[in-house]
Design a binder for these strands. Structure first.
Lengths: 191, 191
DNA sequence: CGTTAGTTTGAGAGGACTCAAAGTCTGTGG
DNA sequence: CCACAGACTTTGAGTCCTCTCAAACTAACG
C-alpha cells in the first residue's frame, strides 16, 4: 500500500486526510497467471495500478487475439472506455505473470475527485501522461516498417522484452508473428 | 466569447467568479488562411479552442509534410507535448481556413487549475476525451487496409470531408496520396 | 492566361501477408 | 525425472497489396 501512496505522492501532496480516505477506498488484489482482471463484454468496474507483475489488455478479432497494451510495475491498467462510460466493451484484461495490484471503482474515483482537488489534478496528470505516451505509439504505427516498429517498442519497453511472448508483441505492433520473427532473426544476425 | 464559455459549461458549472477570471485570462485570435498558430522548433505557448474555421497540425519528415491532426469548430488544438513540457518540438500548426480562436497560456491554465477545482476537472475531462478518441484512431491505424482507414475517417470527420485536401487526409491516415485517390475512385464506382 | 500546387492514372518493384510445415518450448501427468 | 501434448516460434514459398516513380490532367491563384 505504501508503494501506491508513494506513486500518487510523486504527482500531488498527500494530506493526512487524503491518505486516510485512500486507505479506505483502495482495494488490493492478487492475480494468478492467466487470471482475468476484467472479462470481455462486461463493464470494467475498476481501474488498476500494478505494483508487481504484468498484465495485458486484448480483444478477440474474428478469432484472433489482438493485444492492445501492457502494464507492469508502477503502471495503470483499465479498459478506459468501458470504465469511464460504464458500458461493456470487447476488451479483456489478464495477468501474464502473478500480479499484485490496487484498484478504485468509478464511484471511488468520482468521490476522490469531488472531495480532493489534488486528486482531480492527479487524474488529469495521469491522463495527460497516457495521452502523450499514446501519441508516440501512434506515430510509430503510422509510417514505419515492422523493423522500426519493433525498434521503437524495444526502446519503450526494454524491461518487458524478455517477459512477453512474441505473438503478443506482434499483435500489439499490428504485424504478424511471422514477420516479427523474421525481424528478430535479421537483427540478431547483424549484431 | 460566449460560445467558448458555453463550451466549458457543458462540462462544469460556471460560477460568476470563474467567468470573470476566464474573461480576463482568455485571449482571442484571428488567423488568415495559411497563417501559423505555432511554428515548428519553437515552444508552443498556447492551447487553442477553435470557434470558427479549421486548422491542422503537421511536421516535416525528410521533406514530406505529414499531417498529424485537425481541429475545427468546438475543438481544441495545441502541440501537446511542447505546450505541457515547455520544450520545442517539430510540430507546426496552421490555419486551413480563416479561423477564430480563443487561447490560454500554460501560465493561465495552471492558474485556473490552481484557483478553480472545476477547471482542474474540466482539464481532466478534456484530456480523457482526447485520449479515448486517440485510442480509436490507433486501432483504426493498426490493422486495417487503406480503404478501411478512409472509411473510419469518413465516419469520424464527416463534416470536414469537403474542406480537407486529399493529401492531408492521406498523410493523416499514413497512406500515400496515390493510394487514397484510388480508394476514392473505387468507392465512387461502387456507390 | 500562365504558373504552380494538387490530384489522377499507369507500370513496376518490394515487402508484408497468408498458408503450410517443421522445429522448439512449456507445463502436466505418469 | 521423463515423456507427451499443446502452444508458440521459426522457416519457406507464393500471392497480393501498397509504395515508388513518372507523366498526364485538373484546380486554384495571381
Amino acid at each position: 500500500m505504501q508503494a501506491f501512496l508513494d506513486h500518487i505522492a510523486q504527482f500531488v501532496p498527500l494530506s493526512a486526510e487524503l491518505v486516510a480516505t485512500l486507505r479506505q477506498r483502495t482495494q488490493s488484489h492478487q492475480f494468478g497467471k492467466h487470471e482475468l482482471l476484467h472479462q470481455a463484454d462486461t463493464i470494467c468496474r475498476r481501474t488498476y495500478w500494478i505494483q508487481r507483475g504484468l498484465v495485458r489488455i486484448y480483444f478477440n478479432q474474428d478469432g484472433k487475439i489482438v493485444t492492445d497494451g501492457f502494464a507492469a510495475e508502477n503502471e495503470w491498467m483499465t479498459s478506459a472506455y468501458s470504465f469511464m462510460r460504464g458500458v461493456p466493451d470487447a476488451y479483456a484484461i489478464a495477468a501474464i505473470e502473478p500480479t499484485e495490484a490496487y484498484s478504485w471503482s468509478l464511484e471511488d474515483l468520482l468521490y476522490l475527485f469531488d472531495q480532493f482537488h489534488e486528486m482531480e489534478r492527479f487524474g488529469r496528470m495521469i491522463m495527460s501522461a497516457q495521452f502523450i505516451q499514446q501519441s508516440e505509439r501512434l506515430n510509430s504505427l503510422r509510417f514505419t516498417s515492422p523493423a522500426q516498429k519493433y525498434q521503437h517498442f524495444c526502446t519503450c519497453y526494454q524491461p518487458l522484452l524478455g517477459r512477453l511472448p512474441l505473438g503478443m508483441i506482434a499483435s500489439y505492433l499490428g504485424i504478424t508473428p511471422e514477420t516479427l520473427s523474421r525481424v528478430r532473426a535479421k537483427r540478431s544476425r547483424i549484431s
